[in-house]
Design a binder for these strands. Structure first.
Lengths: 213, 213
DNA sequence: TAGATTGTTAATCGATTAACAATC
DNA sequence: TAGATTGTTAATCGATTAACAATC
């Protein structure tokens, strides 16, 4: 049973849903058939009422007195998040980080497919592919985007190139960007950007170490 | 002027402080001498009152009618975050992602020094170093931790090895962990862990694309 | 039925922001 | 002095959690 209520869903709820999903993968591997909100909460380090509240935004998934069917909840959360299908991704910038991402195995496990890489380095273009992913010159972006049905761009270029690439990506009709270049990208309202800034995360870690608790 | 009030500082405030810091780096490069809370806010995509509130947790840094000295605020934020010194890091797991991190240039720019890498692969140990960073067998962890004064462990091993490595790291006296292995680590209360889970971030992106706004 | 756990309400807690006196 | 912008208060908004009736 699921009625997606039209209501503002907090961003943190979505992040936690993703964490619950990860826990459920584990629970399935361990052969659990049913899980309670309190067990799920403990495994994810959150409050049990919060688990139930988060799920309540999207419907009723449990059985009173019993808990949640692991398989059922797993499927429902996938559907809620939109990860019950394949998402095609293209990498921009096949440097060290980019290359590592081309080889990254966890993407595939979760239905995230890396279908193309773009770089301007003639040597890399010469190779044709890295980690089994074909490399193209950015000139080919519009063509490849269409042919490979690219949904998401991963930007791993130097900062100096990132905004330009973002502009081209948006121009080609891609609406999702995962940005590793440590700079804020400006994009139209209908495009979604998620930043992964390693040094900001380290700053956060260091603050907690310095404030020492 | 700065009196660190003993008050609970929200985690989001620290994250924003890190973003302000990034903006100030840029402002300095552009030769700006003074910046107002509204300009800083606009550059970081937040509310101007929020910038002032965030700073107010730590003291008074501005001049009424004028704004903030770019250099002064830059220095103050570095001090608040604890990034006004060098932090030594060690990498665990020199696979694709790990190797990319060994070559990652932005760490150095921000006083994050990668001083050692640990791996069990004989071939890698044979090489002695990757990206200028010496590689050791984990057996040497206690010795190297002490000698190189390692503050932070970066875990980039497979999930199956991550908890074991975390245990060794904690045992060696390291109190900060940046974890790339997609699994929750259990550590003592006095140890700080920050997770970087690529697929969770993609899940989040995908939800927003699916919910389409 | 007795025991357990959900779904949901209401209370609490915390973060954001508008507004403005203070002051450069 | 007039104009500008801070630092801070108070109002608003939103998220977390305790509590419990509903119900398996």
């Amino acid at each position: 049973m699921s009625k997606e209520k039209s209501q503002k869903i907090p961003e943190v709820t979505i992040r936690r849903l993703s964490a619950y999903h990860r826990c459920l993968v584990r629970a399935r591997e361990e052969g659990m058939k049913v899980i309670s909100s309190s067990t799920l909460a403990k495994n994810c380090g959150v409050n049990a009422a919060q688990v139930r509240k988060d799920l309540a935004y999207f419907g009723k998934f449990g059985i009173r007195g019993m808990g949640y069917y692991v398989d059922g909840l797993f499927t429902d959360i996938k559907r809620i998040l939109g990860i019950d299908r394949v998402w095609n991704m293209a990498l921009f910038g096949a440097g060290n980080l980019g290359t590592a991402l081309l080889f990254y195995k966890d993407f595939l496990k979760q239905n995230y497919h890396m279908v193309a890489a773009f770089d301007i380095d003639p040597e890399k273009l010469q190779k044709g592919a890295i980690g089994g992913v074909p490399i193209y010159h950015p000139d080919k972006l519009p063509e490849i985007t269409h042919r490979e049905k690219i949904d998401i761009a991963i930007i791993a270029t130097p900062v100096s190139k990132a905004q330009g690439v973002a502009d081209q990506v948006v121009q080609a009709g891609i609406r999702g960007i995962l940005n590793f270049a440590p700079t804020r990208l400006s994009v139209p309202d209908n495009v979604v950007v998620k930043d992964v800034f390693f040094t900001n995360i380290l700053d956060n870690l260091v603050y907690l170490l310095t404030a020492s608790r």
